[in-house]
Computed example of a mutant assay.
Amino acid sequence: MAGDQTGARKTRRPKQAGAYRVDQQIGFLLRQANQRHVALFAGLMGDKLTTTQWSALTKLQEIQPTSQNFLGRETAMDAATIKGVVDRLVARGYVATAPDPEDGRRLILSLTADGDAAIERNLDAARTVTDETLAPLTPEEREQLARLIRKIC
């Protein structure tokens, strides 16, 4: 067949009751919602912050000083991911590190004045991202969605 790279014939199977449809699966729908959210985030947030950097900055502000390991757990990032995120935030001057006086293998993280300022500059944008992500939903639906997602996490 022209244009068919595998050489196989394309045949249409009749639709079956209960057939698997990827676009009806929760993972697919969550990924679509996340893609929409990330696109809004990228378009509205300043300082070229990523969603993971923003999560780390704002959670660090809440729990500092803390270890990199604990920050990773609190932001649902594995050890390799949080290390990369923290390294980039340190390089930008948003996060300071110091050895843990009780365990030299552990780094203690805290925000710098520049990190606090980056959060302050972007709080309104972060709130707008959330509002625009959830714009199609009523206030009750927003609460229900958050409650249900927390339940499956």
Rank of each mutant, 00 (worst) to 15 (best):
residue 109 L to Q: 06
residue 114 D to R: 12
residue 110 S to C: 02
residue 137 L to G: 05
residue 100 D to L: 09
residue 129 V to M: 04
residue 131 D to M: 11
residue 39 A to Y: 01
residue 73 R to T: 11
residue 26 I to F: 12
residue 81 T to N: 12
residue 71 L to V: 03
residue 152 I to C: 08
residue 44 L to R: 04
residue 144 Q to I: 01
residue 77 M to N: 05
residue 109 L to P: 07
residue 41 F to T: 12
residue 138 T to V: 10
residue 56 A to I: 03
residue 46 G to A: 08
residue 24 Q to P: 01
residue 133 T to Y: 05
residue 30 L to K: 04
residue 17 A to N: 01
residue 109 L to I: 05
residue 4 D to T: 13
residue 112 T to E: 04
residue 8 A to Q: 13
residue 107 L to K: 10
residue 66 T to C: 15
residue 122 N to T: 03
residue 44 L to T: 11
residue 135 A to P: 01
residue 83 K to H: 13
residue 90 V to S: 03
residue 4 D to E: 14
residue 127 R to M: 13
residue 4 D to F: 03
residue 128 T to M: 10
residue 84 G to D: 09
residue 143 E to Y: 08
residue 70 F to T: 14
residue 149 I to T: 09
residue 51 T to K: 08
residue 51 T to G: 06
residue 113 A to I: 06
residue 1 M to W: 07
residue 148 L to K: 12
residue 69 N to E: 14
residue 146 A to F: 07
residue 153 C to N: 08
residue 69 N to R: 15
residue 10 K to N: 03
residue 57 L to S: 04
residue 81 T to F: 00
residue 123 L to W: 01
residue 80 A to S: 09
residue 97 T to G: 06
residue 87 D to H: 11
residue 148 L to A: 10
residue 112 T to S: 06
residue 141 E to R: 14
residue 127 R to T: 04
residue 29 L to N: 10
residue 141 E to W: 04
residue 5 Q to S: 07
residue 123 L to N: 07
residue 120 E to C: 00
residue 46 G to D: 03
residue 53 Q to E: 15
residue 133 T to L: 13
residue 39 A to E: 14
residue 22 V to L: 15
residue 146 A to M: 15
residue 95 V to P: 05
residue 145 L to N: 02
residue 100 D to W: 03
residue 138 T to W: 07
residue 30 L to S: 11
residue 68 Q to W: 04
residue 72 G to V: 06
residue 28 F to V: 05
residue 138 T to L: 13
residue 27 G to M: 14
residue 62 E to I: 00
residue 34 N to D: 12
residue 76 A to E: 10
residue 91 A to P: 02
residue 66 T to R: 12
residue 14 P to T: 11
residue 149 I to H: 03
residue 153 C to P: 00
residue 109 L to E: 11
residue 102 E to Y: 05
residue 135 A to D: 10
residue 95 V to C: 02
residue 117 A to Y: 04
residue 45 M to I: 15
residue 136 P to H: 09
residue 25 Q to F: 08
residue 10 K to L: 15
residue 60 L to F: 08
residue 110 S to N: 14
residue 91 A to Q: 10
residue 86 V to Q: 07
residue 55 S to D: 12
residue 3 G to W: 13
residue 14 P to A: 13
